[in-house]
Amino acid sequence: MKAELCVQTLDNAMASYPAFHGAIIHSDRGAQYTSDLYRRAITRYGICQSMNSAGGRCHDNARRESMWVRMKIELLFDRFNPKQLTVEQLKSLAKRYFMSYWNNRHICASNGSLPPMEKRNRFFAAQTMAA
């Protein structure tokens, strides 16, 4: 993949969905995403780039991809036609899904079969007890 293609994709997305200005885009550390051309484009659109913490950690991205796939399967595909929703409606659905369901009720195998917020609360409770 070339940086020019990635920049063209951003240009097309921004032309179609101006409300994406200021979005967060997650990527791996491929040369196309670390190029000066791509970085100038995301700066131009006010986009914050998120990528894995160090090279060679493909699992950082895999968890994010898994999370998005789950949301699409559980929330969108059987209930809504995303092409008929506005950007604001999609944002609202995604926010409610992650803030309400995913964080508080979704069982995550990587968290000992606990929802993320429960795992977090237990971690901080253990830290308090240890101190």
Rank of each mutant, 00 (worst) to 15 (best):
Y45A: 10
Y101P: 04
Y38G: 08
K72A: 07
L85C: 05
A41T: 06
G46L: 05
L75H: 01
W68I: 11
D36Y: 13
Q32H: 11
Q89I: 01
F20R: 12
Y45G: 11
W102D: 15
K91E: 08
E65T: 09
N103H: 13
R120I: 00
C108L: 14
D60K: 05
S27I: 05
A19G: 10
T34Y: 01
I107S: 14
M129R: 14
Y97Q: 07
Y38C: 08
S100F: 06
I24T: 12
G56E: 06
E74I: 03
G46D: 08
G30H: 07
K83H: 04
E88I: 06
K2T: 13
Q8F: 04
N111D: 08
P116H: 09
E4M: 10
A13C: 14
R122Q: 15
H59V: 08
C48E: 13
H106C: 13
K91C: 00
Q89Y: 04
S100L: 11
H26E: 02
R122Y: 03
A13Y: 05
R105S: 09
C6F: 01
W102E: 07
E118C: 06
M51S: 05
C58P: 11
A62F: 00
P18T: 10
P115A: 12
N103T: 00
P115C: 04
P115Y: 03
D11P: 04
M71I: 01
R105W: 03
M67T: 13
N111R: 06
Y33C: 08
M99L: 14
E4K: 14
E4L: 09
A126D: 09
I47H: 08
A126T: 02
I24N: 06
